[in-house]
Design a protein around this nucleic acid. Sequence first.
DNA 1: TTACAAAAATGACCACGGTCAATATAAATT
DNA 2: AATTTATATTGACCGTGGTCATTTTTGTAA
Lengths: 194, 194
Amino acid sequence: MTRAPQKRRLVTRARLLEAAQNLIAEKGHDALRVEDVVAKAGVAKGTFFSHFEDKDRLLSEIIGADMHASLEKMAAQQPATIQKMADAHQPYFDVIAQNRTTVDVTVRYSGAAAIEDLGPITMAFGRHLDVVADWMENMPAGQLRTDLDTAFLAEGIQAFAVQAIALNFCALHSSVEISDRFRAYLEAWLAPSR
Amino acid sequence: MTRAPQKRRLVTRARLLEAAQNLIAEKGHDALRVEDVVAKAGVAKGTFFSHFEDKDRLLSEIIGADMHASLEKMAAQQPATIQKMADAHQPYFDVIAQNRTTVDVTVRYSGAAAIEDLGPITMAFGRHLDVVADWMENMPAGQLRTDLDTAFLAEGIQAFAVQAIALNFCALHSSVEISDRFRAYLEAWLAPSR
DNA sequence: TTACAAAAATGACCACGGTCAATATAAATT
DNA sequence: AATTTATATTGACCGTGGTCATTTTTGTAA
């Protein structure tokens, strides 16, 4: 039986997260250094690693929270068409595709390391599935293919979201074109004309 | 105008690659250390980085070659059904999903860094698109949806391949189940019943 | 209060990827 | 053959992520 953490620990953790967020806001995810974080937070280096198993885990904590926030914005909507579903993903793409680091970390954590401790990014990916499945359940009839359940369709949407982001980074396209590509994929996936 | 490299340089490069391949065969991709590679190859550390911009680039060179080999096996076939298309991907999955490192590197290099110098993994991804597009061009009629061209359908296949691999690592499924999942995706993507 | 055990924090230390001015070797020029 | 120029290699050095035995702090029970 593990005990509840002392409040001191929670304070330290919050300090570390806040320091990291400020540094990211200043210099971007790529330039984040653990030593800078601990210096700003006023703790020792070892403390950092007693709170986060590695640097990527801290990043995943922050990026995961951002993803979650954008997903809640999405969940508050109910797009009526496939096109609008695609468009509603914009805030989500904005978070994931900020830069190479965010893309890398997102992808790495999309497959969870441990089963027990699903990271925040893994959770966010799960939430994404739920959100789009829910959208599809409540969409005006006749637009979606009916041969597959919404959970399966949602998996496909996730695959296309990742693809759109990856291809965007490949050809150095702008963020706008992510959604162009994504829109075409969704149309083809969700409303095939055979 | 850049000159041709001296043969000495080519020899050194080959030595480095061979040393790396042997070490990977012994201990796996994860345990590869640059210092071990240069020791085995009998060169200085700096030499390594004059041949490969970083460690990941060396890995991408080796994994990319493996991917290419498996793709040529695939290209030599002509599956007659969607199911067989999916099954024919097995050697490709075996290369990419060997372990976490191969998956990470593959994904990272799927989006090329520079435009000039497309890495071997990026090239392999491109080859994959060609191979499956070619399969679809030469398949017995009536199986595939006709509303989209094969190049676009190929992009979707790629997206689903990545998704199948990623989900496999997420839930810690076995390699067998990658292709199960992939088969379902392909059927739904290529032959929707609306 | 004091004593004590569990939790938290510390910082010297290590591992390893990556850099770069200096050196050695090969090719080109006289 | 001697000199010069381009190419290839070297290895000491650095930055930064991550470890762990030790010390400090906190909650608790006598």
